[in-house]
Design a binder for these strands. Structure first.
Lengths: 116, 116
DNA sequence: CCGAATCCCATTGGATACTG
DNA sequence: CAGTATCCAATGGGATTCGG
């Protein structure tokens, strides 16, 4: 596989950087996996509860960006009080296996590394 | 696959978080892939040149932590001037396929997303 | 219930100068 | 050559308050 670097002046994109710039933050992957583990669409507050230690600000920001990237979809039911459900899109689902494999690798290799 | 959350009080580790905490920063994955693409061990300055836009401070810090995690090894040849060579360890190599798959996914799905 | 807006702190990371 | 050390700017992210 070809990898592009910054001094490769002919190209303006680098898949490796791109993907980690997008999902390498603190919450994005966790939200996606939480949605995947939920057997059905999850509401805002359900997500917050299941993740357990995410602030409203960060959950909102993460959801918004995931939606902009087409990885999740947001369904608003204009009731009183409002209800909002989040689901993974096809694109989002296509990313998940790779994330799980990384997590598997981590549980095999990071156990002794962690200690910090 | 089982995923652990923070409110899962019985466990103190979460593979998903662990791995992204470790490799989700700006340079770690890039260094590993650069080492992998080099057909032989790479010296400090070669790494800096190939990556192109990494500062000395960050390259040094990234290499040190990769070494602490057992993902790369550092060989010092005490000559004048000194020569240092970096290689991927077996554990480091075992992680690479997963990173490449993520990069592949990115080049298929992030092209149109990127635009920001 | 689902956020938006603001404030503030901690961490990341870049530029530069110096050392064995 | 291969780093250290220091200073500083930018970003990430938490706590709190407010709105529809």
């Amino acid at each position: 596989m070809k990898v592009f670097f910054k001094n490769d002046s002919s190209v303006d994109f680098c898949p490796v950087r791109d993907v980690f710039d997008r999902i390498g933050d603190k919450w994005t992957v966790l939200v996606m996996i939480t949605l995947d583990q939920g057997e059905s669409p999850l509401r805002y507050h359900e997500l917050q509860e299941r993740i357990g230690d995410v602030s409203q600000k960060m959950l909102t920001a993460t959801l918004k960006r995931l939606q902009e990237d087409g990885l999740i979809s947001r369904q608003l039911y204009p009731e009183i009080p409002p209800r909002v459900e989040y689901t993974l899109t096809a694109r989002g689902k296509s990313l998940l296996p790779h994330l799980y494999r990384l997590a598997e690798w981590a549980s095999e290799h990071m156990r002794d590394v962690k200690k910090v």
